[in-house]
Nucleic acid binder design. Structure first.
Lengths: 185, 185, 185, 185
DNA sequence: AATGAATGAGTATTCATTCAT
DNA sequence: CATGAATGAATACTCATTCAT
């Protein structure tokens, strides 16, 4: 029983690494099976089709993004903490975000993949909305602040940082500073 | 003579559309040739290898991004104008940005592609640096403004908006507002 | 288990016949697979590349030339017997020698093939050297006999007979007669 | 007019070199045309089909083997001279003999090629027959000498030497010595 | 559960040849 | 004469999937 779970997980891990390194374009089942130490036809016992394995990888990836929101903190600090943590994650585990990018791009042509991603992002989006709404309520930010646009800005910025991990932290900090103090002389 | 150019261009256009619609993963030469109305072996007369065609598509894509900087404007207005124009382009021609995303992702595994993209982006990066440096000089923005981080923030944000065209304009405006006035109450 | 060996052998046999009949120039994999009664892609299950199949054919061919030297015989008789046996083989199985010729020619441009052939020929060459050295020692042949040149002469003659099987036996006999009566001590 | 002849010859020369270096297996028309400095479709103006060009190469090769028999010499000396000259040619222009080998092998599957080669060889064969018949007549060699077998032996030996130019001269000398001392009347 | 043999549709690429110019 | 565009049949090789064992 445990074997099964392990094998499945080994396959998902191998698939994840393969996608991170070579993208979907060069994603082939045989090397995945080989990396997991099993015959390539045995792989089909665990994942009947290639799409099934890919779906499992997506699950695996999204499951790593349990919202790390620190609700106890006041909004500005919470935003800073959140942006910092994600930027740090981009630096520490760039493959995770590379793979996410692959999935984001693929979701454009795969409805079920798009749905999974959207569901997963909703939690994130809601948490960000909460930050900004609380911040406005507490007069940290102006009542004129466009909450939705701010949320999308944060999301877009973080997504856009994924391909350049080396700039992720500076970018996150800069965005945070703009929200905190603005840029005027 | 004109025929040649047309055929080549027709192939590049067909390839561009195919990548926009199906990504690199499903990018096959036969349908491209068919879409251009020629035999698939004739395609190789124009582009000896698949990579050659892809390179031509990349050229075609990057050539559409002639810097649209309005140097006459003062820095803040220039930034606003620039962000607005790109956001508008994302809305009007989302495929262009989708394909750019495909190339960005592919560049991670293809050095020559990475070089082409980097060269192309350098002009953009330089123009943004100029905006912020002039802005700081003219005391529009604080001398403490991290110019490089700001540039990367703008780039990351715009790249991150590519996958969600519907939010691109609001996001660009929000970023611009933060630079102009900040968000404080 | 037996199936596997049979299929592999069937492919090698079919490949051998194809090379004998049409040479390397017209050597294509599909007809080989068809002759062995399998799909052309299944062929790649047994021989990943064309070169692998060709290498197997070479092995198969060289393995048929286990030295048929009769060490018990005295040198002159041994030479006569050897020449006679090879000439007879050229007559009985001309395809074997045709294919050998194809490989000899190909070896000029394929180092690993050249190595295999050379290794295989070394045994033959050594056995011939032994015949002539013993013959000189026993004063059957003159001490002035150039052993190496004699060995190369035998080899060249036999190789040169491959393309004209109908003359092979007369040629072998004639060469033998010359050695019998013309090189005496 | 002279241009035409030159172009044709340039193509034949280029084709000859290509066959010498890569054999028939890798013999392609485009590189031949390129080597001759013309477009690949212009080649078809001079040689409508690939086979036509190959036939011209064969003509070119066989034309280089004008019998170099020195009829004035007495038979044994004539044989020695002839063998020496061919062996020297093998050493000096190995490509010529390599290409001949390619043609010999190909002639097995191409009747018209076989005919051309046979016709060309007939002159050689006749000259060798004359040597041995005169030699027997003049009691240089025994009346028991098998003239035809001797001729075929000479031919086989020389053909067999083609693939090993480095041994050609020693082999020719050895064969000659055997005839000198071993077939005496 | 696991294997390896088998499949067939598909992949880029090649090449002799033809044809309009 | 010469060109380059165009063809189509062929070529080795790939890969997800299936099936008998």
């Amino acid at each position: 029983m445990a074997e099964q779970v392990d094998r499945r997980q080994a396959l998902v891990n191998a698939a994840f690494s393969a996608i991170a390194e070579r993208g979907f374009e060069g994603f082939r089942l045989r090397p995945i099976a080989a990396a997991a130490g099993i015959d390539h036809s045995t792989l089909h016992h665990y994942f009947p089709t290639k799409a099934d394995l890919i779906a499992a990888v997506l699950q695996h990836v999204t499951s790593q993004f349990e919202a790390t929101m620190h609700v106890a903190l006041e909004p500005a600090a919470r935003l800073r903490r959140h942006l910092g943590e994600i930027a740090a994650a981009v630096v520490e585990r760039p493959e995770l975000f590379i793979v996410l990018d692959e999935f984001d791009l693929r979701a454009r042509r795969d409805a079920s993949m798009a749905a999974t991603i959207k569901r997963d992002e909703q939690g994130w989006r809601d948490a960000l909305v909460a930050i900004f709404e609380e911040g406005v309520e507490q007069r940290i930010w102006s009542v004129d602040l466009d909450v939705n646009a701010s949320v999308e800005l944060v999301i877009a910025t973080l997504k856009g940082s994924r391909l350049r991990p080396e700039t992720a932290e500076a970018v996150a900090k800069q965005l945070c500073d703009l929200f905190s103090t603005g840029a005027r002389a």
